[in-house]
Simulated assay, not measured.
Amino acid sequence: MSLVELIDQADERGLAVSGLACLDRCVPLLGGDDEILRPLWAGLAEDAGVAEWGERLEQVRGKLGGDGEFGAADGEPGQGSGSGSGSGSGSGEDEAVLLARRMLAAAPVDRSAAGVRAWADACSVAALQIHRLLDPLKDAGDSVDARREGRTEGMSPLVAAELRRQITVLELLAGHGPAGLRPALEVSTEGRRVLRAVVSRRSRRRG
């Protein structure tokens, strides 16, 4: 089953976890530590109410300085630079940071089913595009949309790994319900460590 199909079939919890996991893996671009999103993960595990989710989200935004939004004025995630790669050191990383900030800014405070569905879908595109921008090897596909639909020929390593993690998270929640949240967090933690290492290497090369 393709990533697009998994998102279409996911329930509210699965969508919230999917979006949060994408954001969590991209935290190194926002300057956050590994525990910055833990309150949001805990809220999903505890099945905390909508109000509590919103409060925790605003606290995270305050710590990370989240602002901006997904929008055509700044370029939709996955559009505009869909053919870009991570070969450049400046503009590619700048765009990756902007995409990560939009993911945080667009997180729905009310966590409604419609809101988390739109957010999870946008985060999926943005996270794949971030990994495409930062991958030192060029992804041969025309766009991340093709990857999400199951066309995986010629994927670069970082994009392939991110796609696999997104699929795994959704499968864990679909197959195990709340019990799938802990392994989903473990999958996301692994991805965050990988991206942090990539960002660190790029920083050393620039220095």
Rank of each mutant, 00 (worst) to 15 (best):
G43W: 07
S89Y: 11
S85V: 03
L20G: 00
D34Q: 08
G75L: 01
Q79C: 11
G66D: 14
D94M: 11
G68S: 01
D67W: 11
L134N: 03
L128Q: 01
E46I: 10
A127E: 01
A45E: 15
E153G: 10
P39V: 02
G150L: 03
G31A: 09
G154A: 15
P39C: 05
I130W: 13
G115D: 08
H131V: 07
G32K: 04
V109L: 08
R132H: 02
R102Q: 15
D145L: 12
R164W: 07
G150K: 06
G62E: 10
R111E: 07
P28G: 02
R164M: 08
S124N: 05
D67H: 12
A105D: 00
L128M: 10
S85E: 05
W119V: 01
K138D: 12
E149N: 12
C26W: 07
D142K: 08
G84D: 13
A113V: 14
C26I: 05
R61C: 13
D24T: 13
A146I: 04
D94R: 12
A118W: 01
G150Q: 05
L133W: 09
I130C: 09
G82Y: 08
V60D: 08
G54S: 09
P157L: 04
A42R: 14
D24V: 01
A140Q: 15
D139R: 06
V50G: 01
R102C: 11
L133Q: 04
P28K: 07
A140R: 15
L23H: 09
L23S: 12
C26R: 11
C26A: 15
R61W: 15
D145C: 05
L133D: 03
A114W: 04
R132L: 02
P28F: 05
P136F: 03
R101V: 02
E46L: 15
E52S: 15
S91W: 14
D142S: 10
L137Y: 00
L128N: 00
G115A: 05
E52G: 08
A127K: 00
I130Q: 09
R148I: 07
S156C: 09
G82Q: 14
S87P: 00
L40S: 09
Q79W: 12
G75P: 01
G75N: 00
E162R: 02
A48I: 04
A42I: 05
M155K: 04
E35Y: 12
I130E: 06
M155S: 14
G150V: 01
S91Y: 13
L57W: 12
G86E: 05
R111C: 13
A73G: 08
A161P: 00
R164N: 06
E69A: 14
R102A: 10
L37K: 10
V159C: 13
R165C: 12
W53P: 14
A45D: 10
L137H: 02
R61F: 05
G78R: 00
R151P: 07
A106L: 06
H131W: 15
L137I: 09
A48K: 09
D24A: 11
L20D: 04
E69I: 06
R38P: 00
G49I: 05
L128S: 03
A105K: 00
R117D: 03
R56S: 11
A114G: 14
D34H: 07
L30G: 05
G75S: 02
R165F: 06
A122R: 02
P136C: 02
